[in-house]
Design a protein around this nucleic acid. Structure first.
Lengths: 219, 219
DNA sequence: TTTTATTTTTAGCCATGTCTAAATTAATAT
DNA sequence: ATATTAATTTAGACATGGCTAAAAATAAAA
């Protein structure tokens, strides 16, 4: 059985190696688990002994097959709890991450399977991230970031690739949420900002940073 | 903020001093938190320094006002989660304790208040134990243990004072659950067992131990 | 290709919460 | 009242997970 700390390290390595296609560096992991590089070295050595990760001195860490399985189950638990918090308890989407961060450490397969059923076996969490099934398979979706679209194209928001509270609150204030439909009205060259029509009613301008963090599906 | 361990000690002392009307002994606490007496001595000394308990060498521990407040909130969380597990996730009542034992350590007042609302502000948990409200007030009920009743009296099961899995499964097998109505048919002197009519249909014999752990309300 | 800067590791230390064994105090029985 | 038993505390140790400061390895720049 894993400790909380071990679980957090596995999840960090999962997320880092998922984004970049190479091993997770000590510093990057330290940033994710909010600790010092020295502590990370200690911990990843222990995880390597337990064969949860592959680790070579000075070359970072990647998950072993077992470690990957465990990390995936954590992601599953985290995202299911987020759905519970938003759908059932009506939490706003910017508040669910921290609570789910604690809930994900509860250990009970029966609990998670019943929760999954109770929620109607959701495929995506409140931020649009896919929820792996009990076997660890993720559902993929063809999506792109909004800044890639051309003037005139229409799309629907299916996810956000940043979960920070200020970013999500910014979207709230623009009345943008998952499912919102957009039409690209204009793209400004000098700062890459975009003029957008939201739900066929109001127009807003999005900075490149914002557009880059919006995951959309063409319609 | 409290650690898991500290929370478990406070809860243990709460339960012990709730039952007996005197301070919780080192050994008793050790039994509740499943550790050695030496470890308990260590921990209660720390808790005393933090003024969460009153402690005098060789004389056991009682909760301070602050400690009592914290313990009560833990009980509240535990019991609300038990309701969630039974009512929403349809867990059988003998399986919820262990899971709630983990869930109760999640720290979020917003979460608990929303959960309380979501569940319809229940006053009692699946074993019939009262759930303190956000201010820590318990709802009391006039109840007695079934072994106190006389032949001919009728009652309804409103709680169980033992939560062990075998005991609860035994009740399952007898089709006895909260809300079940009984009539006392006979009391046997030599072993204090009782002959009972359950829900006006089947008759069963309950040992004194079982009857003593059934909390009932006369009707 | 050296020098410099950055990253990673090692070494030594600390707090938490546990343990066993031994010592001390309290309770019980003769 | 004293001896025995039981309960409690102390002492010393260990595992986990964190820290800082210094050393070593790698990467970047001159």
């Amino acid at each position: 059985m894993l400790t909380h700390a071990e679980e957090n390290y596995l999840k960090a390595i999962f997320k880092i190696t998922e984004r970049q296609n190479k091993s997770a560096s000590t510093n990057k992991i330290a940033e994710y688990v909010n600790t010092s590089a020295a502590s990370v070295t200690d911990m990843i050595q222990k995880l390597a002994v337990k064969e949860l990760i592959h680790y070579e001195k000075y070359k970072g860490a990647t998950l072993s097959e077992v470690g990957n399985k465990l990390a995936t189950q954590l992601i599953r638990k985290h995202r299911l709890w987020e759905v519970f918090l938003c759908d059932k308890l009506k939490f706003p989407w910017e508040e669910v991450h921290d609570i789910a961060e604690e809930l994900e450490h509860i250990n009970s397969a029966a609990l998670i399977n019943r929760l999954d059923n109770f929620l109607g076996n959701p495929r995506f969490d409140p931020h649009g991230d896919p929820i792996p099934n009990a076997e660890g398979k993720f559902m993929l979706r063809n999506q792109s970031t909004m800044d890639n679209l051309q003037v005139g194209q229409k799309c629907v928001l299916v996810g956000v690739s940043q979960h920070s509270v200020p970013f999500l609150q910014h979207l709230n204030s623009l009345k943008i949420k998952l499912g919102t439909a957009f039409k690209i009205l204009d793209k400004l060259d000098f700062d890459k900002s975009m003029k957008i029509e939201v739900d066929s009613v109001n127009q807003v301008t999005l900075s490149h940073t914002v557009a880059n963090n919006l995951l959309v599906k063409l319609i």
